[in-house]
Write a protein that binds this DNA or RNA. Sequence first.
DNA 1: TTTAGGG
DNA 2: CCCTAAA
Length: 705
Amino acid sequence: MVLKKRLNYEFNGYHLPVIPRAPRSIRRRASQKKSVEDSQICAFELLAAVAGKLLHESESSASSNAAGGKDLFCIHKHGPKQQLLEEGKAFRSECLDQGSCIENVFIPEATAQGSSLKSSLKEFPHGKSGSALERTSNVTSPNFTKNVACDVKLEIGESKTALENFPTKADGGCSNDGEASDCKMENGMERQVEAVQKQNGDLTAANTCGSKDPTEICVNTRALISSESSVQLPLYSSAVPNASFPKHRIDVKLVTRDDDENSFRCNQPSTTKRAFRPRSCIGYRRLRKMLKSKYWNVAPKLKDYELSNTDQRMKSICRNRKTIYTHERCEYEAPSKRRKLIDHSSTDVHDQEASSESISNIPEKNMKRDKSGSAAFFHRANRVSTSVKGHQASSQSKDCHVKFSIKSFRVPELYIEIPETATVGSLKRTVVETVTAILGGGLRVGVLLQGKKVRDDNRTLLQTGISHCGNLDTLGFTLEPSFSQTTTPLKDTPMLVPCEAHQQSPRSLSSTILELGFPHASGVPPLVTNTGNHVESTHELLPSPANALTDGAVRDSKALVVVPPMSVEALAVVPMNHETKHSILSQRRTRRPFSVIEVEALVEAVEKLGTGRWRDVKIRSFDSANHRTYVDLKDKWKTLVHTASISAQQRRGEPVPQELLDRVLAAHGYWSQNQSKQHGKLQADLLKFSEDQMEQLTPDPPQTS
DNA sequence: TTTAGGG
DNA sequence: CCCTAAA
């Protein structure tokens, strides 16, 4: 079926607008076969399982961590791949596997027929761009990551590394900038080409990202990989600059930026395209839902659910989604009606710690502490936290209670890097956002003993040496930002705090992973956990120049990275506040205005497919634009129709060429008129009819309506 | 999961 | 864009 469809698309210009769509059940089946999603999930689960196992192991012996990490890595890396191979889609780029996607708007040349679209298409240097793209795809992430505009760099803790590299994404031609479409396209292409070239050059050096330290890269890569969201990193290691990809059809894909979901983009051979559907989107949504569910599930009472989140748990959650959902509504609707916040806190990572190398030096003495509601907070935190709380019986030695007084926490340092050309205002915004993100994002507590982090949450105070007789003087606590606002007891994990815009998807992924109990190999540098975030943030952070037009400023401000812990006082342990949660979990997706190119692609697709087949439209023209869901497309169409019906003066935003609007009206009229009959036997007739219509369609709408 | 609409 | 009812 898929094949058939594809053929149709390819060869029929405007002809066959009426591609009868298969009954949903069938479609569903087909889609299910698209294993990508499944495979991803499988991989995910597998990962989770492994993680769980590792975690387990790590608890018993720290030494095993390294190995564990490795294994994990391997699995992650190969698992998906293998699966793909099995599917016979060997050539899918890894980035795809990873779930990273690039948004491509591809426009079949065939389509170009008579419509104005054609003209614009022609502007693309097909040959050249095509090849460039292909190359790009080979290299995949590296290029993108490498990217053009690295306005903001995020650095995390001591591991400055890779972040810098990832940060920018190459800006796809199609992004939302307000530039004229043509220009955009070209620019985008060129850029990509440049990137590619550069990449090739640099590749040898191995530091695509330009990070100075290869080692670090490796580490990061690993970390990233482990975090699932990291998807792209694997490429680094395996990137083969010149590997040749199978040529794709004629589709020209435009790379657009895609942030929310996964920011990585890569060009996919069109062939594969259909194979994996909106998986990322879907996956993303799914995760989101899951998270929500969890939130509800757990958050309400901050019960100490077992922290060990295994995939089992995940599954169950999924299963109960509906139920949970209801639950949520009841309990949380009040605060914010529309937004369901996900409260990671309860579920999160706690146990895991991403160990950061950063060791805070000055241990603070502690005495008693406690502030607000840490109860819940600590609750989860298990042992350590408990101890912090006030006095509690320290685990084993029942007789002794250790009292702590925490005067201050060390707080991670923030590094913000923005272009010289940035305005002071944007700098301020950036700083504010960063801080907000951190504070708002949730904190976790790290425990330092003699300047060293205490990673093992399972050890008792006694075992750790924290007791009366012990050196409380050398005991310190750190407050570290964490994605999920959850605070985790021991260990400090410096993390990237996602800016508000940050989205979910990556975040979700990482969070999820964490929840799953992904243990970081202790040996692994600081970021296993973080990595994912980093990447994410990176994406978001990097504003593509093009985008700047629309919301560039905002974007710019988003990028920030948190580095190592530093001392900040009075950061009371804040249980997660709503706001925090709000900002992180339930954020509204970043607004991404449709670019003219996208509009064009949409119009073109609708002209062929008609309205009411948004899923197909999505697949056809926005398959790789992970941030554009079919609902988005439908909404966009709605607004386009509206836009087309109002005067130019009343329109806002990037102006859409009148020609496109005319086509919108034409298509809208046409399809609304024929909607009822399209599937029937009239199909043939309609076919012809539509053909005619379409052909003359160019600027003038089919009068049919 | 998709579609269709309201907000 | 989000949220949902329906399908």
